[in-house]
Simulated scan of single mutants.
Amino acid sequence: MNLQEDKFFTKPAVVWLLAMLCCALWGSAFPSIKTGYALFQIPQGEFQTQILFAGSRFFFAGVLTVLFGSMLGRKLLLPQKGSWKRISMLGLFQTILQYIPFYIGLAHTSGVKSSILVGTNVFLSLLIACLIFKQETLTGRKVLGSVIGFSGVVLVNLSGAGLDSQFSFLGEGMILISTVSTAFSAVLMKHLSQQDDPVMLSGYQFLFGGAVLAALGFAFGGRITTWNFPGASLLFYLAFLSAAAYSLWSILLKYNPVSRVTVFGFMNPVFGVILSALILNERQQAFGLKAVAALALVSLGIYIVNSAAAARPQKDGLSNI
């Protein structure tokens, strides 16, 4: 991308609009995946087929991303010889370690609860960027914002209004493992996109990660035996939303500080809660007092983190891996 495009993707209005679009697409994934389980008749405990389903989705997302990048650049989007190590590293965190536990966890807990737990990746990304990769400075206001945001996660696990204090490893535990991987992938994309085109990285890590997920699911006995037009259409939509959202998100991460982009992640649980309520009939959880209060805390925490990032310049240096 040239200097003009560089400036374009750092404009506040552009960052705001594109980041919100990404979060709306990701928010729609929560109810869409659960609907996909029903359309393809995938049982709750059949994690092998769930992983096969995920692998199919992300492999097709990789195909769409490469096609999009090729049309954008008017030539076939291909990785350089030295890019495969970075692609495999990103694919490990962004697809394999993120979505194996995510698909298992989503099958064992509600879409509303999952979407709010996933929102904590904003704070984890900030801590990883500051403490491990040294991309930003960790301040007291950022820590305060992280604590307030995490308190929303604690609140959503309290009993009442359909949101209980139960915590299972296969449910909430898997979602949290996925969230940690999501946080690492965001910081890795910021780092690796300084050496490679971010759309290329997104496309080929999807192809790599999707193929690995599909192979693992099939090897352990996963099979998708029910195919119909609604199911195939939903699978295409899931592939499209991943291709579009991750391509745009990776471009934003390349040209902006991690905190400036990932701070919009608080909209993931907001969109996830609203869409889960409408599509999955989880209205009691979505509009209960504790759920609304939890979302308010998450939003307040992100506001504090964002104001802290804006008040202090970010570091440009990136650590080596």
Rank of each mutant, 00 (worst) to 15 (best):
A286H: 06
Y246Q: 08
G288Y: 03
L216T: 12
S193Q: 09
V153I: 15
V261T: 11
V147R: 02
P257H: 09
L207C: 10
S151M: 15
F169H: 01
F266T: 06
A232T: 13
G209A: 06
I177N: 00
Q166R: 12
F271V: 03
G203V: 11
A245G: 13
L201C: 09
L155K: 06
A277S: 15
V153L: 14
S242V: 11
V180F: 14
L252E: 13
S185W: 04
A277V: 04
A214Q: 05
N281R: 08
L295P: 01
V273S: 09
V154T: 05
A161T: 11
F236M: 14
L295V: 10
G265L: 04
Y204M: 06
T225R: 12
A245M: 12
L201H: 08
I251R: 11
V258I: 12
A243T: 06
Q285M: 13
V147C: 08
L289D: 04
A232H: 01
K290N: 14
V147A: 13
F287T: 04
L192Q: 14
V180M: 09
L280I: 06
R283P: 00
T262N: 13
A243I: 05
F206T: 10
V156G: 02
G231V: 09
K190N: 10
G288Q: 07
V270T: 11
L207S: 06
L289C: 01
A277I: 03
L295F: 02
Q284K: 07
A215V: 13
T225N: 15
S259H: 05
P257I: 13
V187Y: 08
L163H: 09
A294T: 05
V263T: 15
A215M: 13
P230V: 12
S276R: 04
G160Y: 07
L216Y: 07
S181I: 03
Q195F: 11
A186I: 09
L295R: 02
A277G: 15
H191Q: 13
F218Q: 10
Y246C: 02
N256F: 10
L234C: 06
N268H: 02
G222W: 07
F287N: 04
S276Q: 07
V270A: 10
G162F: 07
A291P: 00
I224D: 09
G221L: 11
M189K: 02
A215Q: 03
L201Q: 08
G288F: 05
L192M: 13
S165Q: 09
Q195S: 14
F266K: 04
V263P: 00
T225H: 11
L201F: 07
L253Q: 12
V258C: 07
E282P: 04
T179L: 03
W249M: 09
A277D: 05
Q284W: 00
P230M: 11
G203A: 12
F220S: 15
A243C: 12
G203N: 13
N228K: 07
L278H: 04
S159P: 11
R223H: 14
T179Q: 01
Y255N: 14
L207P: 02
S181F: 03
T179F: 02
A243E: 06
S165Y: 01
L216C: 13
I148S: 06
T179I: 02
H191F: 00
T179N: 09
A186W: 00
G209H: 05
W249C: 03
I251S: 03
F240L: 14
Y237S: 10
I274E: 04
L252G: 09
L170K: 08
L235A: 12
V273G: 06
Y204C: 10
K254M: 11
V212F: 01
F184P: 00
